[in-house]
Design a protein around this nucleic acid. Structure first.
Lengths: 116, 116
DNA sequence: GTGATGTGCAAGTCTGGGGTTGCACATCCA
DNA sequence: TGGATGTGCAACCCCAGACTTGCACATCAC
């Protein structure tokens, strides 16, 4: 997939998707049950089926979930790849920050030595 | 896990903090400059200093940023630890999903064999 | 067919949070 | 001492999005 350009937007949609507690709960339920429909999931949550459907749409757009139709029902399942990619992105970012902070600290110490 | 009890809330605040594009931009700027004040950062963004202050408060509450006072100005710096911890949390979650999906797939195949 | 179950679509409500403006207060510097 | 610069606080505007209700449409089971 086009790693180069769309990465930022992908990360954005995933972070936005994960920021909502109801959606995270939804992901937990899906991960625990393997597959489930919006109706089933709504029964396990304090919200309407419609709310669940909307959340699933957001999660689907972020690539965190897939939906497949079987007869008259739509079964959703969790999708680890997108989450894993985001985890790596985040770890890389943390490493980058560390690097820069180390550089700055190093430069500061050098300046201190020069000043003496 | 030794992660303690407040892990969920910490992750929540971090995800919420990262979900906003302006805040991510703020983190980028801070990481690039090592240290900066709200006023300086506001000059590099299309928003008011007050907006930046609020964002920095959110980032600070999430542990992604630290603020130190030097004279009359408050200098902020990035803080990689929280981000790194979240990255690990996310990677672990992805792995967990993978495990469960593998189990389910395995069980399905076994059932299929039994059915023959 | 007919009722039961599951999904899709539309319009509507309402709270939270991102953003602003205005002013008071603290600190530096000449 | 006084002006310039940087923060802090408070009230306010505004809209995206989380959630609901109501109904039409599709599918299954009998």
């Amino acid at each position: 997939m086009a790693e180069g350009r769309g990465t930022a937007e992908a990360v954005d949609s995933i972070l936005v998707a994960l920021a909502d507690p109801t959606r995270r709960q939804l992901l937990d339920l899906l991960a625990a049950q393997g597959e489930a429909t919006a109706t089933t999931l709504a029964e396990q949550l304090p919200v309407t089926r419609q709310a669940v459907v909307k959340h699933l749409a957001v999660l689907n757009a972020a690539g965190l979930v897939t939906g497949g139709r079987i007869g008259r029902e739509v079964r959703y399942a969790v999708r680890p790849a997108a989450l894993d990619a985001t985890a790596r992105w985040m770890a890389a970012l943390a490493a980058e920050w560390d690097r820069r902070l180390a550089n700055i600290k190093h430069a500061a110490e050098a300046a201190e030595r020069d000043a003496r």
